[in-house]
């Protein structure tokens, strides 16, 4: 069975979602719930930390596609950081780096939020 978890941290600059495990069509709903919870709590500056994410399929990518417009309309953004190479490859296949900030570190994403760079 796929193992996936998402935990939340709030910093002065952003809400950080630490993803761990494998994100597929079975576990994507957990990410969906996590992002929805963040939005319900008024958190629109989201950093997706992929340091411990080992796998993603299009169902996982679809969650970001489905939410990012609403988040940007609310003055926020989804910034994706610290992806492992094989996971970055999948984001890249669909062209994510052209429409999302995909950054090496959490700190860089936080700095962009602090600088008011909400949109990519």
């Amino acid at each position: 069975m796929s193992s996936f978890s998402v935990t939340f941290r709030t910093t002065p600059a952003a809400q950080i979602l630490d993803l761990s495990g494998e994100l597929d069509a079975h576990t994507a709903q957990d990410l969906e719930v996590a992002i929805q919870t963040s939005l319900s709590n008024g958190k629109f500056a989201l950093v997706i930390n992929g340091a411990n994410l080992r796998y993603i399929s299009s169902a996982g990518l679809g969650v970001f596609m489905a939410f990012v417009e609403e988040i940007r309309e609310n003055g926020g953004d989804i910034k994706i950081v610290a992806l492992q190479p094989q996971v970055y490859d999948t984001f890249d296949l669909l062209g994510f780096p052209h429409l999302f900030d995909v950054l090496p570190t959490i700190e860089e994403a936080e700095a962009k939020f602090m600088a008011g760079e909400l949109r990519h």
Binding site: L61, G62, M65, A66, E69, G95, L99
Partner: peptide
């Protein structure tokens, strides 16, 4: 159509066949 269109439509589906053909 493309990623921009999926984002605008707030829909994440439909990319599986694209990936299969690509890979």
């Amino acid at each position: 159509q493309d990623l921009r269109a999926s984002i605008n439509a707030r829909k994440g589906g439909g990319w599986g066949v694209f990936l299969m053909n690509k890979l």
